[in-house]
Structures are given as structure tokens and as C-alpha cells.
Deep mutational scan, measured.
Amino acid sequence: MAAGGDHGSPDSYRSPLASRYASPEMCFVFSDRYKFRTWRQLWLWLAEAEQTLGLPITDEQIQEMKSNLENIDFKMAAEEEKRLRHDVMAHVHTFGHCCPKAAGIIHLGATSCYVGDNTDLIILRNALDLLLPKLARVISRLADFAKERASLPTLGFTHFQPAQLTTVGKRCCLWIQDLCMDLQNLKRVRDDLRFRGVKGTTGTQASFLQLFEGDDHKVEQLDKMVTEKAGFKRAFIITGQTYTRKVDIEVLSVLASLGASVHKICTDIRLLANLKEMEEPFEKQQIGSSAMPYKRNPMRSERCCSLARHLMTLVMDPLQTASVQWFERTLDDSANRRICLAEAFLTADTILNTLQNISEGLVVYPKVIERRIRQELPFMATENIIMAMVKAGGSRQDCHEKIRVLSQQAASVVKQEGGDNDLIERIQVDAYFSPIHSQLDHLLDPSSFTGRASQQVQRFLEEEVYPLLKPYESVMKVKAELCL
């Protein structure tokens, strides 16, 4: 049975990233139509530049190519590739079939990587351009969430054990800070992308030097003109047959890092959902379990974690691919890159769409948070109580021993009897502590235990987050809708 299948058929496997999760716009960027249309555009740009620099290419040939950029006979191309065992030459023939007058000058002087690699770089750039505003929107939604809850005390956790208090907004800023680093890295790697350009079979530009009869300047002009037509500021000066596969490492490393950030955020949300302090959106008709109707599973956060793990592992592909590119190139890269580049971007696209949807509907339960604080705060307040007693004339050592005994009794009630923490009640009825009984409410005010959390939130948002989001103001209103 021949390899390949009808990918629109229910009898043929289709990647869930495309069929179930990723956005239509990201799927289109990695589609065959987008790819092969870009090949034709690159052939047109090459012909236009070659004509401008004096090669015998007519206006009629150029116009014929322009008129057929979208006229792609995919069936013919597939048949040609089956016959020739070469995808680029299959599309040269297919393009030439609908451009008979231009057929002889299509791909003039070029090698397969002229269309293959340059198209990949265009796709990487455009895919990054799709991700950047999506990530900015996630940051914006979380920034709104953090600002609104900047002063809401909550129990902090280290080692997932109760620690000092923080605020809900401050905790959210930990998430935002990681995503801001990801946004900066995505922008950097996007701006650092260079075009492969017009380089020939081993990167020496020998074929173009021959076409222009040894004119170095025209060869350099050709490279520059096509690079500018493709919208790049610069091209690699040095290439082998391909652009260095280190570029793929750079791009997928940034995406993998984004995956790590999203995994951490969504894990926190899942843990908070278990504590009943916070939940992701839950639709009115949504079913959490087929057997347990009360369940409210954090399905979206779980999906993000599941896909983020996949995204983090994909960076190993370009690392290994770059390491086995012998001399000017081997074909070890080809099949692998067809999979890992598309999957990385479709996965990143999915987790950003999902995280935006989550961040637009996060639900906080202040009463649950308050109750958990009441359970733990008495123990945390013991040092403040000791200091207040010393100020009232008591002995630190005597007070410490009193607190120690009462704390152990209260802990026994919590752990052995399943009761509430009654340390404060014990202190309130103990005559030894009568000098500070009137101060206990103040000493137990949760806001006095959150330090500068709310001020940190305000400063972080104003100095770091809002300036970073400013270039994306025009796209901030787009909502994230999930079908599944």
C-alpha cells in the first residue's frame, strides 16, 4: 500500500493539533497551500530580480507567473513527485505547466533550498508574528487579574506546605514575570531571523556568478533584492546548502521555554482548584465526569500541561538535527523538520489560546482563602504575639514557653481530632496574655502579614508589564474561544 493518505478522510490519521486544537490561522501558515504558494512567490521574486539585473526574462513571463501564483494543481504535483521522487522539481514542473512561456526560467540558477529553506524562514517569521500578540493578550488578562487582587491576602506555599502570606495578585505576578520573559525572547528570536537568500547549491553562489558572467556586484544585488522582497532586513552571508540548523534550535528553545512557563502556571491553577481557592472557567453544560456528576475538573489547565510537556520535548529534535548536518548538509534534517517545526508552533498556539481562555474567566473564592488563612495564621502570628507581650512588660522566655504549650495543644486538636485551630481562643482565655487581649485582632490582621506584596504588584505592572504590552494595544480586544 502506498504511503500517505487522504487526510480529510475519517479513515486516515490526522494530527489532533490540526484537527482538534490549533487555530485556523496557525494551521494555514503550515498548510501545503501556504507552503507551495510561497515557493511560487519566491520563484517570481527571483525572476523579477534577475530581470532587473539584466537576464533575458520578459515582462510577459513575469506576468504569467504572477497570474498563476494561486493556480496550484495539487493532484498534478503529487503525481509528479511520485514520478520524480523530488518535491521541488515536482512543483517546478507543475508551475511550468500553467506558465508555459515562463517554464524555462522558473528556478533559474537556484537549488531546492532556495524555495525550501527560504519558505521555512518566512513561515517561522509569520508563525512567530501570530504567537506574539496571543502571548501579549494572556499577559494582559493576567495583569488585569493581578491588579484587581493585588491586596487580597492568601496563604503562600513553599514545598506545598503553608508559608508566609502573600497576595493573590502577587502570586499571579510570578506567572506574568515568566511570560514577559517569554514574550521578550519570542520577539528577540523573531527579529534575529535572517533570510537564507540566493546562495546556490553549497552556499557559494557559483551558479549565479556564472549567470551574471562573473559580476560579483550583481550577485550581491540579486541576494539583497530577493531578501528585501521577502520582507527581511538581512540575509546570511555564510550558508551551506541550507541555512544553519542552529536557527531551528533557537526558535524551538524559546517555544519550549514558553511551554515550561505555561505548565507551571496551569499546575498552580490545578492545585488551587483542589484547594477550592480558584477555578478555571466551567461552562453551564460542561460535564466533569461521566460517573461523578459533582466533579469540576480543571480540564483546560490539564490540557495545557499535557501539550506543554510535548512542546518542551520537541527542542531535542533540532538539537540532534543540527549535530548531524555533515559538511554542507545531509538530508537527516528533512523529514524531522517537516514534523517538529509545525508541531512546535501548533502546540504553542494551542496552549496560548487555551491559557487566554482560562485567564479571561478565572474565578476566585475569597471566603475559602480566608478560612485557610484562619487555619494557619495563628501559628504564624506567634512571633508577633511574643513581641507584643514583651512590649507590655512580659518575659520573652516565659511567653515563648506559654505559646509553645498552647500551640501544641491547638495542633493536637487540628491533627488528632480534625478540629479547627483554636490557638487564639486559648490565648484569649489565658490570664497571662490579658495585657494584649485587646491587640489580638490587630495582630491577626492578614494584611499585616503580606509585606509589600501589593506595592510590588503595582510597581511591576507599571514599570515592566504595561510598557512591554504597549506595541500590542491594537490587538488586545480579541477574545479566545474554545470549541473543545
Score class of each variant (00 low, 15 high):
Ala2Ile: 11
Ala2Ser: 15
Ala2Leu: 12
Gly4Asp: 14
Gly4Met: 15
Asp6Ser: 11
Asp6Ala: 11
Ser15Arg: 10
Ser19Met: 05
Arg20Leu: 01
Phe28Val: 06
Phe28Tyr: 11
Asp32Gly: 12
Arg33Phe: 07
Lys35Leu: 11
Phe36Asn: 13
Arg37Leu: 13
Arg37Asn: 05
Trp39Gln: 14
Leu44Val: 11
Leu44Ser: 06
Glu48Tyr: 04
Glu48Asn: 04
Glu48Pro: 00
Glu48Met: 07
Ala49Asp: 01
Glu50Val: 07
Gln51Leu: 07
Gly54Met: 08
Leu55Ile: 12
Leu55Met: 12
Pro56Ile: 11
Thr58Leu: 11
Thr58Pro: 06
Gln61His: 13
Ile62Glu: 01
Glu64Leu: 10
Met65Cys: 08
Lys66His: 11
Ser67Met: 12
Asn68Glu: 14
Asn68Thr: 11
Glu70Ser: 15
Asp73Lys: 07
Asp73Ile: 05
Lys75Arg: 09
Met76Thr: 14
Met76Glu: 14
Glu80Thr: 11
Glu81Gly: 00
Asp87Thr: 00
Val92Met: 09
Val92Tyr: 02
Val92Asp: 04
Thr94Gln: 13
Phe95Pro: 01
Gly96Thr: 15
Gly96Met: 07
His97Arg: 09
Cys98Tyr: 15
Cys98Arg: 10
Pro100Gln: 11
Lys101Trp: 09
Ile105Phe: 11
Ile106His: 04
Ile106Val: 12
His107Cys: 04
Gly109Val: 00
Thr111Glu: 00
Ser112Thr: 01
Tyr114Phe: 09
Gly116Ser: 14
Asn118Asp: 02
Asn118Arg: 00
Asn118Met: 00
Leu121His: 04
Ile123Val: 12
Leu124Thr: 14
Leu131Cys: 12
Pro133Asn: 14
Pro133Trp: 14
Leu135Phe: 11
Arg137Gly: 15
Arg137Asn: 12
Ile139Glu: 04
Ser140Tyr: 15
Arg141Gly: 15
Phe145Gly: 06
Ala146Ser: 10
Lys147Tyr: 12
Lys147Gln: 14
Ala150Cys: 15
Leu152Ser: 08
Thr154Asp: 07
Leu155Ser: 00
Thr158Phe: 01
His159Glu: 03
Pro162Ala: 05
Pro162Leu: 06
Ala163Cys: 02
Gln164Tyr: 04
Thr167Cys: 01
Lys170Phe: 08
Trp175Ile: 04
Gln177Tyr: 14
Asp182Cys: 01
Leu183Gly: 05
Leu186Ile: 11
Leu186Gly: 12
Arg190Tyr: 08
Asp191Ile: 12
Arg194Cys: 13
Arg194Glu: 03
Phe195Thr: 06
Ala206Trp: 00
Leu209Asp: 13
Gln210Thr: 14
Phe212Leu: 12
Glu213Asn: 11
Asp216Asn: 14
Val219Gln: 05
Leu222Thr: 05
Lys224Met: 09
Lys224Glu: 10
Met225Gln: 13
Thr227Met: 07
Thr227Glu: 02
Glu228Phe: 07
Lys233Asp: 09
Lys233Phe: 11
Arg234Ser: 13
Ala235Lys: 07
Ile238Leu: 06
Gln241Cys: 02
Thr242Lys: 01
Lys246Gln: 02
Ile249Gly: 06
Val251Cys: 09
Leu252Glu: 03
Leu255Asn: 05
Ala256Met: 11
Ser257Ile: 07
Leu258Ile: 07
Gly259Ser: 11
Ala260Cys: 07
Ser261Gln: 03
His263Lys: 03
Asp268Cys: 09
Asp268Arg: 00
Arg270Leu: 00
Leu272Gly: 12
Leu272Phe: 06
Leu275His: 09
Met278Lys: 01
Pro281Glu: 12
Phe282Cys: 05
Glu283Ser: 14
Lys284Tyr: 15
Ile287Asn: 06
Gly288Trp: 02
Arg303Thr: 01
Arg309Tyr: 03
Thr313Asp: 03
Met316Trp: 13
Asp317Ser: 09
Gln320Lys: 04
Trp326His: 15
Phe327Leu: 09
Arg329Gly: 02
Thr330Glu: 00
Thr330Ile: 03
Thr330Gly: 10
Asp332Lys: 01
Asp332Gln: 00
Asp332Arg: 02
Ser334Ile: 02
Ala335Pro: 08
Arg337Lys: 12
Arg338Leu: 01
Arg338Thr: 04
Ala342Asp: 14
Ala344Asp: 04
Phe345Val: 10
Leu346His: 15
Leu346Glu: 08
Thr347Val: 08
Ile351Asn: 01
Ile351Val: 11
Ile351Asp: 03
Leu352Gln: 07
Asn353Ala: 10
Asn353Pro: 07
Leu355Trp: 07
Leu355Met: 12
Gln356Asp: 07
Ser359Gly: 12
Leu362Phe: 12
Val363Tyr: 06
Val363Pro: 05
Pro366Ala: 05
Val368Cys: 05
Arg372Cys: 03
Arg372Glu: 04
Arg374Ala: 07
Pro378Gly: 04
Phe379Ile: 05
Met380Cys: 04
Ile385Thr: 06
Met387Val: 08
Ala388Ile: 04
Met389Glu: 06
Val390Asn: 06
Gln397Thr: 11
Asp398Glu: 09
Glu401Leu: 08
Val405Asn: 14
Gln408Leu: 09
Val413Ile: 12
Gln416Lys: 09
Glu417Cys: 09
Glu417Phe: 09
Asp420Arg: 03
Asp422Leu: 06
Ile424Trp: 12
Glu425His: 15
Arg426Val: 04
Ala431Tyr: 07
Tyr432Arg: 06
Phe433His: 05
His437Ser: 10
Gly451Cys: 01
Gly451Ile: 05
Arg452Met: 15
Ala453Thr: 10
Ser454Lys: 15
Phe460Val: 06
Phe460Glu: 04
Phe460Thr: 05
Pro471Glu: 15
Tyr472Val: 11
Ser474Trp: 15
Lys479Gly: 15
Cys483Asn: 15
Leu484Pro: 06
